[in-house]
Design a protein around this nucleic acid. Structure first.
Length: 894
RNA sequence: GGGCGCGUAGCUCAGCGGUAGAGCACUCGCUUCACACGCGAGUGGUCACAGGUUCAAUCCCUGUCGCGCCCA
């Protein structure tokens, strides 16, 4: 017996455990079934589930369950990411509360602490994924830093190095002063900062008393200036090109160069060039062979180590400049401005909103810094990936995302892959005392290589740096399958079928998987890339801790059940739309789950049980044929939607069928038959059971728990077996057309009568006759077949043709060829009835008029598609007939 | 500055050449024997604006305005 109310909290865990322990999530590499592969976007190992996960995992699980039910050998590959910076940050914060630092602990002790932290908190996210029903093949769970994946990382690094696609380079890099590490371009976000442009006067060194005024947003970097640039065509400065200025504060003599980088429209048209601290200046520096002294250290504090100071009266006082050593860059800025002002070299300060690059994790302004880092030649690796998207081997859904992808990939910059962190894959490179590099998979191999090179056992030291976290994630589609070993899994499950993720990591992750997949597997990593939106709150605002509008998916699960959350997500996941989610929306979707539960309870109370002997072609009644045909329609719609990744349409098709067709009409219309015994009752019950079974299978991918529970309760199969049941397919129903016509008529009849009664304010407890005038024999026969349903649903006290005189005081309505007459005796207000009929008449008249005008248009008749013209002719004929009947009805009451 | 997306009922969104739909909200009615997380009936829209193409435009094209995101 089903309980009166559905209690998901009591059953979900047991159902999940039943699936998991029964091996329902397992892929079967040895099976002949066609594979279906989805790789989980690995969440941070120490993370917790947020709504974004709930969205992406629900969609992936829905697809996985759908394909599994279709008989595919589904592999949804689980795993977690070591999340280099994020995890190291968390543990460092932890250490800070203990009053220590990683530097104090030392590398090995620190790493042990991180592994401890991972062991302690690493299970949380996987447990939470279980809560939302994710059918991941858990025994295959991988971690980006486990042994196998580490082998893959080293293999890829060494191979790319030997192919010349990974190399060391000394160039400007985005330096995060907080983490004291290089970061990649993608980890930099530009933020608008209200700041200033300072106009600084640099005097010429020719004793002419002339000077040039440069405009800058970063005055403190002037200590490292090695040129001033003006545009070659800028007539204001033509005569100064090639001359020198004295750089204030340092006394350095720097050249005025002509370079097109300088924009005459901006500032003063003259810019200071600091090659070691600005990406554009670096390029200018290269073009003009300038020196590139760094004046900021790794903590973004001033260092004077690479420059020399000269005293110049009124321009540069080494005693002042030396006080800057070791100062924070922003403190130094203040002092430098003050000093320049004192020296009367500060000409102007203009308010300006600057685009300032910030580290996306650290939140501090990044500093371009000249360092040696490891780079990956992304431009080369991108080519095959671009080609694969161009020729359709990989498809973005929605397709528009390929524009974003192409724009980035076709202009891709070298990927800085080294990080000055400890938590991550340590770069497999060793250096001899003379700086010679040995890149090998193991230390032994590196020692051997060194011995071969030096001819003796020269000591080598390993590179201190680790790889960008995304380097290992880029290998995820094949490293998880055992690569570089040629495993059966690799052979069967690569390439994946679909990658599901948000647009925010197209560059970070998707593009890089494509590059690495194409290079190392010679094939795409996945065929489809389904890009979903972001989860926002009900008002469409981004969720954030500071706004306090963050929704905890597990709180939603606890409160409303997993299925309610998942169904809400399913219905909201339209293409290219963000998902707006809040408690009210989840609560609203719980109503649907409850509705389904109650419909099932109703079936149970009426002794409806599955009958394996029943098939749709055995249906003989209009009602059963009709609901079966409608079920088949729903299956067609739902399947088409899932094939097109239209989760919203899938949800809508299921919703409409279950609520507005099965519950609202089928179960209501079945009630009279269910109250009887005999062949008709048996067929209705068999059909109800059959259709309920279809519903459970159809909806299981989205709402797995309640469907699985009902599946077992009704005995459609063993406990926990719905997950492996067959997804329904459309089918033919004999006599469906006639059944549809009959039920369609009945639904309209009941609906129309209800509408009239409601408009006349007749309360449901007052029954009234429903009589037909001018009805065909077929219509009357139909009505008589449904007399009990009409009685209950249209509140009819009797049903039949109008006999003899028209009853006095009757409401009338036109339905096809017939006029329905509802005698209401003293209850009717003739004025209200006349107004109602006239309103209806006006509506039909307007429609007829529009159609008539169209048909009178010779161009329309000549040029429109014939079926459209025909359709309009029918429309006009019908409207005219209806008008005539409405006129007759009006005449009868006046 | 470049690119992408979006402006449809009070709200959230479908639809996308043939005279507008859903859910929620709202109004009215209902202890109708599964369900008040319910049942029934309604109110509500010159489909942002202006041109153009077409027999026909919410839908296609151009432009304008507004909002969001990405990249410089």
């Amino acid at each position: 017996m089903l309980s009166k109310t559905h209690n998901p909290a009591e059953t979900e865990r047991a159902i999940y455990a039943g699936w998991e322990q029964g091996g329902a999530f397992a892929a079967h590499p040895a099976s002949d079934a066609a594979p279906f592969t989805i790789m989980i976007p690995p969440p941070n190992v120490t993370g917790t589930l947020h709504v974004g996960h709930a969205l992406t995992m629900t969609l992936q699980d829905t697809l996985t369950r759908y394909r599994r039910m279709q008989g595919r050998d589904a592999l949804w590959q689980p795993g977690t990411d070591h999340a280099g910076i994020a995890t190291q940050m968390v543990v460092e914060r932890l250490l800070a509360t203990e009053g220590t630092t990683r530097q104090e602990l030392g590398r090995d002790t620190f790493l042990n602490r991180v592994w401890d932290w991972k062991a302690q908190s690493g299970g949380a996210i996987t447990e939470q994924l279980r809560r939302i029903g994710a059918s991941l093949d858990w025994p295959r769970e991988r971690f980006t830093m486990d042994e196998g994946l580490s082998v893959a990382v080293r293999e890829v690094f060494v191979t790319l190095y030997k192919q010349g696609l990974i190399y060391r380079d000394r160039r400007l890099v985005n330096w995060d002063p907080k983490f004291q590490s290089a970061i990649s371009d993608l980890e930099v976000e530009s933020r608008e900062i209200n700041g200033f442009i300072w106009h600084l006067r640099y005097p010429l060194d020719d004793k002419s008393g002339r000077s040039i005024v440069v405009a800058t947003t970063r005055p403190e970097t002037m200590l490292g200036d090695t040129a001033v640039a003006v545009h070659p065509t800028d007539e204001r400065y033509t005569d100064l090109i090639g001359k020198h200025v004295i750089l204030p504060l340092t006394g350095r003599r720097v050249k005025i160069v002509a370079d097109e980088y300088s924009d005459p429209e901006k500032g003063t048209g003259a810019v200071k060039i600091t090659p070691a601290h600005d990406f554009n200046d670096f390029e200018v520096g290269r073009r003009h062979g300038l020196e590139m002294p760094s004046i900021l250290d790794r903590e973004a504090k001033i260092t004077l180590a690479e420059i020399t100071l000269h005293a110049v009266e009124g321009v540069a006082d080494p005693a002042f400049t030396q006080t800057l050593e070791g100062l924070d860059r922003f403190e130094a800025r203040k002092r430098i401005i003050a000093e320049l002002e004192r020296l009367e070299l500060l000409v102007d300060i203009v308010k300006h909103t600057n685009q300032v690059p910030h580290g996306d994790r650290s939140g501090v302004p990044i500093e371009p810094l000249l360092t040696v880092q490891w780079y990956c030649n992304a431009a080369e690796l991108a080519k095959p990936a671009i080609a694969a998207v161009e020729d359709g081997r990989m498809k973005f859904v929605p397709q528009q995302w390929e524009n974003t992808f192409f724009a980035w990939m076709r202009d891709i910059q070298p990927w800085c892959i080294s990080r000055q962190l400890w938590w991550g894959h340590r770069i497999p490179a060793w250096y001899g005392p003379d700086g010679v590099v040995f890149v090998e998979q193991t230390e032994e191999a590196a020692i051997a290589a060194a011995r071969a090179h030096y001819g003796d056992d020269t000591a080598i030291t390993r590179d201190e740096d680790v790889l960008d976290t995304w380097f290992s994630s880029a290998l995820w589609p094949f490293s998880t399958l055992g690569w570089p070993e040629q495993t059966p899994e690799l052979a069967k499950y690569y390439p994946g079928d679909v990658l599901v993720t948000g647009f925010d990591i197209i560059f970070f992750w998707v593009a890089r998987m494509m590059m690495m997949g194409m290079h190392f597997m010679g094939d795409v990593p996945f065929r489809h890339i389904y890009i979903h939106g972001l989860v926002r709150d009900e008002k469409g605002q981004k969720m954030s801790k500071s706004k306090g509008n963050v929704i905890d998916p597990l709180a939603m699960v606890d409160q409303f059940g997993t299925d309610a959350l998942r169904f809400a997500i399913t219905r909201l996941a339209g293409p290219g739309r963000d998902v707006k989610l809040g408690p009210a929306i989840v609560e609203n979707n719980r109503s649907f789950i409850t509705k389904l539960w109650n419909a099932a309870r109703f079936c149970e109370m009426n002794g409806i049980v599955p009958d394996v002997g029943f098939a749709p072609d055995q249906a003989t009644l209009p009602l059963t044929r009709w609901i079966l045909a409608k079920a088949s329609d729903a299956i067609v719609e739902a399947t088409a939607a899932l094939e097109a990744y239209r989760f919203d349409e899938y949800g809508a098709a299921c919703y409409r069928f279950v609520w507005n067709v099965f519950c609202d009409w089928f179960l209501e219309l079945a009630k009279p038959a269910l109250a009887t015994e005999g062949a008709e009752a048996i067929e209705v019950k068999q059909t109800a059971a059959y259709v309920l079974g279809l519903i459970l299978r159809l909806m299981h991918p989205s709402i797995p728990y309640v469907t699985e529970e009902l599946w077992a309760e009704f005995g459609y199969g063993e406990k926990f077996s719905l997950i492996c049941a067959t997804f329904p397919q459309s089918f033919d129903v004999p006599g469906a057309a006639e059944a549809r016509a009959e039920l369609d008529w009945l639904v309209r009849l009941i609906g129309d009568v209800r509408a009239v009664r409601s408009e006349m304010n007749i309360i449901p407890s007052v029954k009234a006759p429903v009589l037909l005038r001018d009805a065909s024999a077929e219509t009357l026969a139909r009505g008589h077949r449904w007399i009990e349903a009409i009685s209950r649903m249209a509140r009819a006290s009797e049903f039949g043709p109008v006999v003899g005189e028209m009853p006095k005081g009757a409401a009338q309505l036109v339905l096809d060829e017939a006029t329905i007459v509802i005698p209401l005796g003293g209850l009717i207000d003739f004025e209200v009835e006349r107004a109602r009929l006239q309103k209806e008449r006006a509506r039909v008249e307007k429609d007829a008029e529009g159609t008539r005008r169209k048909l009178e248009n010779a161009d329309f008749v000549a040029r429109a598609k014939p079926e459209v013209v025909e359709e309009n002719r029918d429309r006009l004929t019908n409207a005219q007939a209806e008008l005539a009947r409405l006129d007759a009805a009006l005449a009868r009451i006046s």
